[in-house]
């Protein structure tokens, strides 16, 4: 094989290899959506975060607007402190309500922002005051069974 043909093949190989990496990054992964551009930090305290994880999504009206960067336990107040990284393009009013939701019955958990009406916006590093904890499925079920049991007792 002469040199130029060999170079051509190696060039072809490297090109489609890099194209595959690009395909994985853009089409399969979420490089195009998040993690690019500027961000600002927010914090929120929850009594119970359920199955929330680092890198879980933060959504408002179903759109991803940020990611969870850190989860810590506050031993003074016995609550979980969640740090978030928000897309700098989106600002939220100070009375925004942060809830922990579940996508589908058993899906991933994410933080949902329900936007309030305050005219002042949340600043970088600020703490979100109004939060609602995760709904724990086991609690719901036991509550439901308990209610059923007491109802059937009443009927007797």
């Amino acid at each position: 094989m002469n040199r130029t043909a060999l170079d051509l093949w190696v060039g072809f190989f490297v090109a489609i290899g890099l194209a595959a990496v690009l395909f994985l990054a853009l089409k399969v992964g979420n490089l195009s959506a998040a993690s690019s551009g500027e961000t600002y930090a927010l914090q929120a305290k929850f009594d119970n975060i359920g199955g929330l994880k680092i890198r879980s999504a933060i959504k408002s009206s179903g759109v991803v607007v940020g990611r969870v960067t850190n989860i810590e336990y506050d031993p003074a107040n016995y609550v979980a402190v969640v740090s978030m990284q928000m897309d700098a393009r989106y600002k939220f009013p100070r009375d925004t309500f942060a809830t922990i939701n579940t996508s589908g019955l058993l899906g991933d958990q994410f933080i949902g922002f329900e936007v309030g009406g305050d005219s002042e916006m949340l600043k970088a590093g600020e703490l979100i005051k109004k939060t609602q904890s995760a709904v724990v499925l086991e609690k719901l079920i036991s509550q439901f069974m308990f209610n059923q049991a007491s109802e059937s007792k009443d009927k007797k």
Partner: peptide, 8 residues
């Protein structure tokens, strides 16, 4: 797929 697969 895109929502779940993380680049890093």
């Amino acid at each position: 797929m895109q929502a779940t697969v993380d680049f890093r």
